[in-house]
Design a protein around this nucleic acid. Structure first.
Length: 600
DNA sequence: ATAGGGTTAG
């Protein structure tokens, strides 16, 4: 009876159709009874079936019971681990197969092993596998080669990827898409788009995954027009849109400044996961809509999706923008309860940044000290924290410790450091750090570095040196730099350079009233009355359309917003009384408020 | 037949 039912060889299609563990176990039992497990391909098929059904344990048990696993068994167990996302185990199995297994790996073995290397960014193991595959005659295999392309792309080696791609005799959609995605994440969006065009001209039709790569490219450069045309392309070709494609669209529109389109796409999505929500939340947080971002975080939870690290990072960013310490703290508590903070630098840095921007330097430092993995961005956040709190000396000492820890400072490190030094007026240290950036680390200074340096020099009365520095810039200096020079000149009564800076500022037409006030004050000090009245006219015109600034104060977890001459707060009488008292106390201590130019 | 390419965050 039994042997009639499972007459060998056990049909593969039957096993591959089964994906329920019990049925596979039954088939397994039958095969043991008929002695078929010892056969050629059956164990492999069975292991593969266990793997597909997610029963890795049973797959491993069966595999380990085999005295001499065949290639199909090896591949099946390796693939089962690939489903389970355990790259280390895959490489371990691969090495065992090669060294003692006696079975020769084939194209699919190499493919899965290379994928594991890509996940681990393990270039060295990948190269070993590459030469092994070449020795066995797989150097022209599309699967192996595409996996290698992906390995190079994940390791940031697009030059090597390109070199291999160029000599590949056979390429398919996956090879092309790997290159497109690789260029996008390497910050080379134009190369990505160029590759897509080449792919099309060679008659290869794109799919959703290729579109995701292209949308990423547009997001990187914030190119709305191109993003829009890719969106149109997707619709025209009637491509299936899944969550990932739609999320990429949301992200692309958000990054290219079209929040309302991002919102519209999102609201029409049928399936939303935590990634889609996070894309939307970060879109709002990064565009300064902190309250909306926080509101969406709540809505996501209401819809039954719990925040993950990425959504919390955006939530924390929103908190730091509006100084919402209480909520930031509760996020911190939430992620500790959920044990989300282990080994996640991004999350840890976001918490540090939140405490830093909410004025809790000590909390930030405590957290920084216990962070298990500190990369250069974590250090940057901490250095910038000291800068924000006006402690340039500590920022500098942290910078030195960072170098001792063998971490390479980048342009952001120096931006934070220079800004900290300039706010503390540490001129010599500023000059040294600027030179260190240029000579020791060969970092091209950007607008921010120059602005801090000019601010530092001009503030200390070295307007001439600041101007010399500006003249070494290759790019055209922006408003911030001239304003820094101007304000230093105003304080030190350096009217000649000051007027020169003022002219530069006016030429750049900033739409900041404060800047015009500064320019006007300089001309007034220099007794250039024609210019003063001219600027007053400009300011009056601007004043009409300027949106009023406001400040936010958090009390007992509630945010209170205040505008100029705002009396809408229910307790405004008491508030004003306290302010008056504070001003009186300050004057008693010798503080003389500097009244800036008043509009008439 | 099996295997390779995709979304969010400091």
């Amino acid at each position: 009876m039994l042997s009639a039912f499972c007459y060998p060889p056990w049909p593969r299609f039957l096993l591959s159709a089964i994906n329920n563990s019990r049925a596979i176990a039954q088939a397994h039992a039958l095969m043991i009874l008929t002695g078929e497990v010892a056969g050629d391909n059956s164990p492999g098929n069975l292991i593969a079936a266990y793997g597909r059904s997610g029963n890795l344990h049973a797959a491993r048990q069966l595999f380990h019971s085999l005295p001499q696993p065949t290639i199909s068994s090896w591949n099946a167990i390796i693939t089962a681990h690939s489903r389970n996302d355990s790259p280390f185990e895959i490489l371990r199995l691969y090495r065992r197969m090669v060294s003692v297994g006696g079975a020769k790996p084939d194209s699919s073995t190499f493919t899965v092993a290379l994928k594991a290397c890509a996940q681990l960014s393990d270039l060295e193991s990948g190269e070993q596998i590459r030469s092994h595959a070449a020795n066995l005659g797989f150097q022209n295999d599309v699967f192996v080669n595409s996996s290698l392309l992906n390995l190079y792309a994940k390791c940031g080696k697009m030059v090597d990827a390109l070199q291999l791609f160029d000599k590949m005799p056979k390429r398919d959609l996956v090879s092309w898409t790997t290159m497109i995605t690789g260029f996008s994440s390497a910050g080379k969006p134009l190369a990505a788009i160029d590759f897509y065009i080449r792919m099309q001209s060679e008659g290869v039709q794109g799919d959703g995954i290729a579109m995701v790569g292209l949308l990423q490219a547009c997001a990187v450069i914030g190119h709305a027009r191109m993003g829009l045309s890719i969106h149109g392309h997707i619709i025209r070709l009637d491509m299936r849109m899944d969550v990932v494609v739609e999320t990429s669209l949301v992200h692309m529109y958000a990054k290219s400044g079209h929040l309302s389109l991002a919102n519209r796409i999102f609201s029409r999505m049928r399936h939303k996961n935590v990634v889609s929500w996070s894309a939307l939340i970060s879109a709002h947080a990064q565009n300064g809509f902190a309250n909306e971002a926080l509101f969406m975080l709540v809505k996501m939870q209401d819809s039954g999706i719990q925040p993950d690290s990425a959504s919390l990072v955006s939530g924390l960013l929103a908190c730091s923008q509006i100084g919402f310490l209480k909520l930031g703290k509760s996020f911190h508590g939430f992620l500790i309860r959920r044990r989300l903070n282990v080994d996640d630098v991004k999350l840890g840095t976001a918490v540090i940044d939140m405490y830093s921007k909410c004025g809790c330097l000590l909390n930030a430092r405590t957290l920084f000290n216990v962070l298990s993995l500190r990369d250069s961005i974590a250090w940057n956040a901490m250095i910038s924290c000291y800068g924000i709190h006006g402690n340039g000396v500590e920022a500098l000492s942290l910078f030195l410790k960072m170098k001792e820890a063998n971490l390479k400072p980048d342009d952001a490190t120096f931006a934070s450091l220079m800004s900290a030094l300039s706010h503390s007026g540490l001129v010599d240290e500023g000059r040294q750090s600027f030179n260190c950036m240029l000579n020791e680390f060969r970092i091209e200074p950007g607008e921010k570095h120059y602005a801090s340096m000019v601010d530092l020099l001009a503030r200390a009365g070295h307007a001439e040196e600041a101007l010399d520095l500006i003249r070494t810039m290759t790019d055209e200096p922006g408003v911030a730099i001239w304003v820094a020079l101007l304000s230093g000149c105003l304080n030190h009564k350096k009217f000649i350079i000051g007027e020169y800076a003022a002219e530069k500022v006016l030429k750049l037409n900033p739409d900041d009233l404060g800047v015009y006030a500064l320019v006007s004050n300089l001309y007034a000090s220099a007794r250039n009355w024609d210019r003063v009245s001219e600027i007053r006219r400009v300011m009056k015109k601007m004043g009409m359309k300027k949106t009023p600034g406001h400040s936010l104060v958090e009390l007992d977890g509630k945010l209170h917003a205040f505008l100029v001459e705002d009396i809408s707060h229910p307790e405004h009488v008491k508030i004003v009384a306290v302010l008056k008292r504070l001003e009186y106390e300050m004057r008693k201590l010798g503080y003389i408020p500097k009244i800036e130019l008043v509009l008439t």
